[in-house]
Design a protein around this nucleic acid. Structure first.
Lengths: 282, 282
DNA sequence: CCTATTTACGTCCACCGTAACAATA
DNA sequence: TATTGTTACGGTGGACGTAAATAGG
């Protein structure tokens, strides 16, 4: 059985002649005759009486009608689902770093939920390197990360490059007692460590936190310093000063598996987030 | 889109690997890979993550699942309808002569209705020649008639050959006053006319009736004679005597259009009727 | 090394179009 | 003759199989 045969069967029934059905279907009479005959052979029945003026459906043809219609409409639903409403449903799993999250996610998420209410959106925040692993392991559809070592499985699209600044109360910036950072793999931890190295403070104590609030709370309390995008520090009211561009610049990229075509829902979210990101970090 | 692609998609989902799906479907890996890729290209999505150990369905694949299942089950319903339950439904239009009707139809119809309750059975009684026209014009699926002139569109199957006898009250048989018969085209009218001719009574009056009851009623009332199968006259209690075999033998054939495959329901009814006919006319 | 998928390539069949034929009004 | 369906036939694209390459555990 073949969808095409059923389509032809229905069109012949609708028009009442093989010729006009062939024309409607952009093919030739002989082909319609052959497809019809094939269907009749498959089902082992006669579907139409061949009369001198067109054809007339038989009792067996009538039996087939509802089934054929059902199948064709189900097939049309697939096209509707995937071609005409590609964004309406699905599940999207996006990864972010805590800093990206703080900067631009909430507004993007609100806009996305409003536009595509049927998409199940899952957001995970983690360090850049962990996000890369999640992409490779198919646990995320895409992620915004700092620069990642080249991996042949991963496609990386540059989003923006913003400088990190050194945040901390005045006393700490002048004489830092500790670096308060995310776990290994966070791009801003890297910057902070590079800053410490370049300014001869490599033996400074390290305090690790797993949340942005935790880090900034401690920094505000004068327990240490941290490198962050200026925007984040401003939002939390943490004093800061600029640091050398040599190592302060942090890339933000959108990454995804090269061998997996992103779902339309994922593409839509990623581009929306990227737009938000660029707007807010201008 | 193609039913085969959807079947492959579902089997890959069910088994979790392309290899085992190929084995289940009696084909090879490379073919499953290709069909899957074709489906993905058509829908413009990625349906499975290719992992080192089999594949895993994606969010878009999950979207496709219910549609694919729906279509495949609808296709299976067609097979069920036409292959496994070929006799359950439909419409059957059978033609009979009045004499055939009287002889064997009632019991056959009862048996058929019991066996195939969902078939819409339409019975038409008319003269043999009229039934032939109905077959040619697609208004009947099949008919039991007397012998008909060869028509290349009509397939004719011999059922039986029984002699007609001359029915009438004693006085009428000895000296018939009229032939009481069906309209032109009835095989038994033909026999009656041949009898009249051979016995030198060609100028006898003709009374036409359109029902068997009418004919036999008049014959019983002594208004004339008629030629009928012995069995019919017995049933109605009409006296009779045998006539010459030269013209008394009446064929009964089952006829149908050669270019139309009979529906299973029609075949079933015809064979049942034929069996009844043979049994009752032994 | 075994399992699993992808890619390359060759074969073959089925679909489709052209064209001639048949039947009917 | 015009309309419609059927049959014959040839080309071609796509489906399928074989086999080698690739990747991960």
């Amino acid at each position: 059985m073949d969808l095409n045969e059923l389509k032809i069967f229905l069109e012949v029934y609708r028009t009442g002649t093989i010729s006009s059905a062939a024309e409607k279907l952009n093919t030739v009479q002989s082909n319609v005759t052959a497809r019809l005959k094939k269907l009749e052979d498959e089902l082992n029945v006669c579907l139409f009486y061949r009369k001198s003026r067109g054809v007339e459906i038989t009792s067996d043809g009538k039996r087939l009608l509802p089934f054929a219609k059902k199948i064709m409409s189900a097939a049309a639903e697939i096209n509707a689902e995937f071609k005409f409403k590609p964004l309406c449903k699905g599940e999207v799993r996006i990864g972010l770093t805590d800093t990206t999250f703080a900067e631009c996610l909430p507004s993007a998420m609100a806009a996305y939920k409003k536009k595509y209410p049927e998409v199940e959106l899952t957001i995970k925040t983690d360090a850049s390197s962990a996000l890369v692993e999640d992409i490779i392991g198919y646990r995320l559809d895409g992620a915004f990360t700092g620069s990642v070592g080249g991996n042949e499985n991963i496609e990386s699209v540059h989003v923006c490059r913003v400088p990190a600044v050194l945040g901390g109360v005045k006393k700490e910036i002048e004489s830092p007692s500790a670096m308060i950072v995310f776990k290994k793999g966070c791009s801003y931890r890297d910057v902070t460590e590079k800053w410490a190295l370049s300014s001869g403070k490599q033996n400074i104590k390290i305090i690790e936190f797993s949340t942005l609030d935790g880090i900034l709370g401690c920094v505000s309390a004068g327990l240490g310093v941290t490198c962050m995008p200026e925007k984040v520090l401003r939002k939390y009211g943490v004093p800061f000063e600029e640091i050398e561009e040599d190592f302060s610049l942090v890339e933000t990229n959108y990454i995804y598996r090269r061998d997996v075509k992103p779902s339309a829902a994922a593409d839509a979210f990623a581009s929306l987030l990227r737009k938000n990101f660029l707007t807010e970090t201008d």
